[in-house]
Design a protein around this nucleic acid. Structure first.
Length: 420
DNA sequence: TCTGGGGTCCTAGGACCC
DNA sequence: TCTGGGGTCCTAGGACCC
C-alpha cells in the first residue's frame, strides 16, 4: 500500500501560515519574476483565477476581488517543506519526497482496517506540528494513491484521507474520474484518448492492453496497469542524482550589455555548481543559452546557445564561471534587448568516478578545499555570503519580486515579534 | 512595462560497425 | 545476378510532472 501526502494549495498555505488574518481570504502566488499565477488558495480558485494566468492581465481583477498577491518565496516554502517531510519521516522511514509539497509513503504490513485512521492521523499531526493542511490518498499503487488523494481533497466528508483498497471502491471512483486527471495523462494523451471515446479512467482501463501499449508506449501501459491495481512504479526512497542541472531566469528589465549578462550568468553558474556539489557530483558538459523576449514581436529577436565539453568533469564554481563567461562572449551579439539567460550542466558523474585527464593543469585538490570552505561559509552565513568577484551584486539584472513576503522561519531579522 | 523554472523518460531515425 | 541482418550509439523531439 502507498500513501500520497499532498499539501493543500501549498504556497498559498505557507503565505497564510504567518498571516492568520488571511485565513478565509483569497490568495495567489506568482511565479519567478512575478510572471504568472502558480498557486491559489481555495477562495481564489472559487473566484475563477486560472492557474498559469499572466499576472499583468489580471491586475485589475485581483484588485477588485481583494485578492492578496505574493511573489514566490522559495526560501520560505523550502523550509516549511522540510518541516512537513521531517514530520512524515516520524510515521515511516519508507518515504519518497516527490516534490516540494508531496511525498509517497510505503505502508506495507499495516493492517488494512487501520489505514484510513492512519491517514487522518497524518493530517492531524502535520496540521498541529507544522500548521499546513494536507490530504492523504491511500491505495495499492501510486497512480491509485494519486486518485485517492484527489478524492480526499475534493470531499470534506473524507476528513482529509481517502482509502481505495478494494476493487469495488476503485471501480466506483474511477468510473467518475476524468481521464485527464490521471497522473501521467497530459493534454496530448487526453486528446487522443477522447478521440478513442475514452472519457473516464474506467473507460481507459477497459481499453485492450495491446492498444494501450501501441498508442501510448510503455509509459501509458504502466499507468494502465497501476489503475488495475498492479504496482509498476516503485517507491524511490533514495533520491536519484540529477542527470542535468539547470539554472535560468528571466530578467525584471531587459538587458543589453554583455557585462550585465555575464554577471547574471556567473550567479547562475555558481548556483548550478553548488547544486552539483550538494549531490557530490561533477559535470563535463556545459550549455549556455540566451534569448530576447519572444513576446515582444515589435523588437528584433535573437536566441543562441553554445555547448562546451570539458576535458575533465568539475564542480568548481570558479571553473564553471570562467567557462560559461567564455561561452557567453562567443554567442553574445550586441544590439538586442535580452530577456533571459541560463546555464545547463550535463554529463554528470559522481565526484569519485571522474575520469582524470592527462592534459589537466588545474590544482584540483586545492580547488576542492576552496569549494568546501565556500560551501560551509555560505551554509552558515546565508547563500552567496561569500561569492566570486564576477558574481557582482546583481543591482541591474534583478528579477521582479515586488510582493515578497518575509523569510519568517529562516532569517533572524524576519522572525515575527509578538506583543503579549 | 508585464507571459516561470526545473526536471524526467521514451521513441524514431540516422550513422556507423561487423 | 545479388540490394543482409543484427547491433550500438547518438540526437532531436515529444510527452509528461510539479
Amino acid at each position: 500500500m502507498f500513501a500520497l501526502v499532498d499539501c493543500n494549495n501549498f504556497y498559498a498555505s505557507c503565505e497564510r501560515l504567518f498571516r492568520p488574518e488571511l485565513i478565509g481570504k483569497p490568495i495567489v502566488v506568482l511565479s519567478n519574476n512575478d510572471g504568472c499565477v502558480i498557486a491559489r488558495s481555495n477562495e481564489a480558485k472559487a473566484l475563477g483565477i486560472a492557474m498559469g494566468a499572466p499576472a499583468f492581465k489580471m491586475e485589475k481583477e485581483m484588485k477588485q476581488n481583494g485578492i492578496h498577491v505574493f511573489s514566490s518565496n522559495y526560501t520560505l516554502y523550502g523550509d516549511i517543506s522540510n518541516r512537513v517531510m521531517t514530520e512524515l519521516s516520524g510515521f515511516t522511514p519508507d518515504i519518497e519526497t516527490y516534490s516540494i509539497d508531496e511525498a509517497f509513503l510505503s505502508l506495507h504490513g499495516m493492517p488494512l482496517g487501520a489505514l484510513e485512521m492512519y491517514g487522518r492521523e497524518i493530517v492531524r499531526a502535520i496540521h498541529r506540528n507544522v500548521g499546513i493542511p494536507v490530504s492523504v490518498g491511500i491505495a495499492p499503487t501510486k497512480v491509485l494513491a494519486k486518485v485517492a488523494n484527489k478524492i480526499a481533497k475534493k470531499n470534506p466528508s473524507k476528513r482529509g484521507a481517502c482509502l481505495l483498497d478494494t476493487q469495488e471502491k476503485q471501480i466506483e471512483v474511477l468510473s467518475k474520474f476524468d481521464v485527464e486527471d490521471i497522473w501521467g495523462i497530459g493534454r496530448q494523451h487526453t486528446k487522443r484518448l477522447n478521440a478513442l471515446g475514452v472519457k473516464t479512467a474506467l473507460d481507459f482501463m477497459r481499453l485492450p492492453r495491446a492498444l494501450v501499449q501501441k498508442q501510448f508506449t510503455i509509459v501509458g501501459l504502466k499507468i494502465w496497469e497501476e489503475l488495475h491495481g498492479v504496482p509498476r512504479i516503485e517507491l524511490e526512497d533514495v533520491p536519484a542524482a540529477k542527470q542535468t542541472i539547470c539554472t535560468a531566469r528571466s530578467f525584471g528589465k531587459m538587458i543589453e550589455t554583455v557585462e550585465q549578462l555575464a554577471e547574471a550568468l556567473a550567479n547562475y553558474a555558481a548556483t548550478c555548481a553548488a547544486k552539483l556539489r550538494r549531490q557530490k557530483c561533477c559535470a563535463s558538459c556545459v550549455t549556455v543559452f540566451l534569448h530576447t523576449n519572444p513576446f515582444r514581436e515589435d523588437l528584433p529577436q535573437y536566441a543562441r546557445s553554445a555547448v562546451a565539453n570539458l576535458h575533465q568533469a568539475t564542480s568548481s564554481t570558479i571553473e564553471l564561471i570562467e567557462v560559461s563567461a567564455k561561452m557567453l562572449s562567443q554567442i553574445y551579439k550586441a544590439g538586442f534587448l535580452y530577456k533571459k539567460i541560463g546555464i545547463i550542466l550535463s554529463e554528470i558523474v559522481p565526484e569519485n568516478e571522474v575520469q582524470v585527464s592527462l592534459f589537466d593543469t588545474i590544482d584540483r585538490p586545492r580547488d576542492a578545499e576552496i569549494m568546501g570552505a565556500l560551501d560551509s561559509i555560505n551554509a552558515k552565513y546565508g547563500r552567496d555570503a561569500l561569492r566570486i568577484g564576477r558574481q557582482g551584486f546583481g543591482k541591474r539584472w534583478k528579477h521582479r519580486q515586488e510582493r515578497l513576503s518575509p523569510c519568517y522561519s529562516t532569517r533572524l531579522s524576519d522572525v515575527l515579534t509578538i506583543k503579549v
